[in-house]
Simulated assay, not measured.
Amino acid sequence: MTITEVSKKYELSADTLRYYERVGLIPEVNRNKNGIRNYTEEDCRWVEFIKCMRSAGLPIEVLIEYVTLFQKGDETIEARKEILTEQRKQLIEKMEDIKKTIERLDYKIERYDQSVVKKENELKRMDD
C-alpha cells in the first residue's frame, strides 16, 4: 500500500505516518524501486497499534521504547510486557478519574435541570 492509501485507511496524515517512521514509532517501511514507501500488512498492523495506543493517551516516548525493544527480539519480551502492564495500570487509573468526573458532571447537570424546572413552575404559577 502507498502512504496515501494507508493515510486514508487509518485516517492519519501522510506527514504523521512519516513522523511515526522517523521517530521510530513504526519500523522503517520498505520502499519500491522509485523510493516510494510500500506498506505491508505488518507495517499496517504497526500503524494500527500505534494509532490505538496514541488515541488512548500513551506517550510517544513509551511507544518508541516499546518498538525499540520489539526490534531487539524475544529477549525483550519481559521488558515489553512490563511497559504494557504499566500503561494498562495508568489507563485504568485515568478511566476511574474520568468516571468520577462524569458522575460529577451528571450531578451538576441534574441540578441545573431541577433549577430550570423549578423556574418554569414558578413562572407558570405567576401566569395563573
Rank of each mutant, 00 (worst) to 15 (best):
E93S: 07
V62T: 15
I26R: 05
S7Y: 10
S115Y: 14
I92H: 10
L58A: 08
V23C: 04
I60Y: 01
E96K: 15
R54C: 04
Y107F: 12
K33H: 14
C52K: 12
E96L: 13
V23L: 04
S13D: 09
L105I: 11
T76E: 12
T16L: 01
Q90A: 04
K89S: 13
L58Q: 03
A79W: 02
D43N: 13
Y112S: 05
N32Q: 06
S7H: 12
L123P: 01
K51H: 11
Y107T: 08
E75W: 09
I60P: 02
E96R: 06
L12P: 10
Y66R: 03
G57I: 10
R80G: 01
E41C: 00
M95P: 00
K108C: 08
G57Y: 03
Y10D: 00
R125C: 00
A79G: 02
T4P: 00
K81N: 11
K124A: 12
K119W: 12
S7E: 04
E86Y: 06
E103S: 11
I50D: 08
L84N: 02
K99D: 15
D74F: 04
K51W: 05
K72H: 12
N121S: 01
T76W: 05
R111I: 08
K89V: 12
P59K: 15
M1K: 00
K124D: 14
M126R: 14
I3S: 08
V23N: 07
Q71F: 00
C52W: 07
T2H: 00
Y20L: 06
K81T: 10
V47G: 02
N121W: 13
N38H: 07
Y10S: 03
I92K: 03
R18Y: 10
W46S: 01
D127C: 04
I83W: 10
E11S: 13
G24H: 00
C52M: 08
I109Q: 13
Y10K: 02
R31F: 06
V6D: 10
E78I: 11
E82G: 01
I102D: 01
M126A: 15
Y10E: 05
E93D: 14
Y39S: 00
M126T: 10
G73F: 04
T16I: 02
L12Q: 02
E28Y: 01
V47K: 06
E5W: 02
D128K: 05
K9A: 11
E48G: 02
R22S: 08
D97N: 12
D127K: 15
V117W: 05
K94Q: 14
D128L: 11
R31K: 14
E21C: 04
I77N: 10
K89T: 14
V47A: 05
